Amino acid sequence: MKGHIRKRGNKYAIVVDLGRDHNGKRKQKWFSGYDRKKDAEKDLPRILNEINQGTFIEPSNETFKTYLEKWIRNKKTQIKPTTLDNYTRMLQNHIIPALGHIKLEKLNRLHLKEFYSMLEEEKELAPSSIKKIHAIVRSALSDAVEDGLIMKNVASGIKTPRIGPSKIKVWDEKQLMTFLNSIKEDPLYIAFHLPAMTGMRRGEVLGLRWQDIDFDQKILRVMQTITTEGFSDAKTQTSDKRTIDLDDVTIMELKKRKKIVAQDKLKAGPAYEDNDLVVCTPLGKPIYPRNYNRKWYNFLEKVDVPKIRVHDLRHTHATLMLLQGIPVKVVSERLGHASIEITLNIYGHLLPSIQKEAIKLFSKNLFENEKKENKNSL
């Protein structure tokens, strides 16, 4: 059995000769889609060996979504009804929306790592929930290997967030202001001001449109997000859109940003791609999470503050509000948590110190007012 490389347009293909059929017609198998010739040359020996050994798996166009839907149907007779309900919920709410569009054979470890990171940072799922989701993905891919649909289980060996007390790294007020003041002249300053002052998630900031901001009422509505796969609706499980009140400084910064966008649009002319985005490139195109993170870490290299994740700007916002005595329910609503319990699980460690400060303030106000009243009565 022989094989060779052939160029097709701008790409390369592996062509394997399989001999001739019963009519004497030459049989060939094509493996297309290689961007570089050397990549095809590197893959050729493996394909020939797998065909000779009988271990070659025919590439499939089946998506992960299609496979998972068949997989869960087959699981009905193998697992308990309660477990099946849990699996189905995890598939519908998290796994399929994020990974379902990827072809089963193309799914890789990077896809899964980014998925788990998104669940932790943007969805704010507990480590135990992410581990359960990972177990479902690993089990499904294990069955796909046994059924001969893929060569290996890419979920094996991937580490998920450790279950244990959450250790959130945040800045204090001075550190936050040092950072914000240091990057203030950057055209994309607003992209980092917003999570610090509103508690918005990264995807929510990147998906924010001008039409979602009411400058007169000083509020914004979280209507859409941007993920690694593009735009998605920001609708929550209760179908409510989150509204966030804005302070005067943030309103001022948004107006500054609007002027920058208007200038970019004028300069680009017909080349401008108008998505109505607050955070975008000079040509109006969306900025995706990976590039946003890159910008963040470039800033951190230049500013003398402790290194934290960009998602920790959201945690910083929540922490500073709680330490200033803002009710947990108000903070929970700003963050868009489904329940106050989620907020308490994340920031509950702050409550003892908050209570100490609160009782000091309560006592001070109570007894000072009594002294003033007694003094006035004399």
Rank of each mutant, 00 (worst) to 15 (best):
L335C: 02
H4S: 14
D248W: 11
W171V: 03
F231L: 05
L141C: 05
R20I: 08
Q28L: 10
R138F: 06
E373D: 14
K65G: 04
A155K: 01
K7Y: 12
K235V: 14
R221F: 15
F64N: 04
K123F: 10
A155V: 00
A40T: 00
L110F: 11
Y272N: 08
K255Y: 09
R242Y: 02
A234S: 06
W210L: 09
L149P: 01
N153R: 02
K123P: 00
V303N: 12
T83V: 12
H193I: 04
R36N: 13
I168F: 02
L84T: 11
N291E: 10
D216G: 03
D248R: 13
P59L: 00
L99V: 00
P289D: 06
H193C: 14
L351E: 13
R290K: 10
E122Q: 08
S377R: 12
K29S: 04
S232N: 06
S239M: 12
S60N: 11
I51D: 00
P165C: 14
M118C: 09
M90T: 13
L313I: 01
R89E: 14
D274R: 01
A191F: 02
R257D: 01
M177C: 08
F31E: 01
I359L: 12
T227Q: 03
K371C: 02
H111Q: 06
W30H: 04
V310D: 10
E120M: 09
G3I: 06
P270Y: 06
K302Y: 10
K76D: 14
K106H: 15
K356H: 07
E62I: 06
H134P: 01
K256H: 12
T88L: 10
G325W: 06
F215L: 12
D35I: 09
P327N: 02
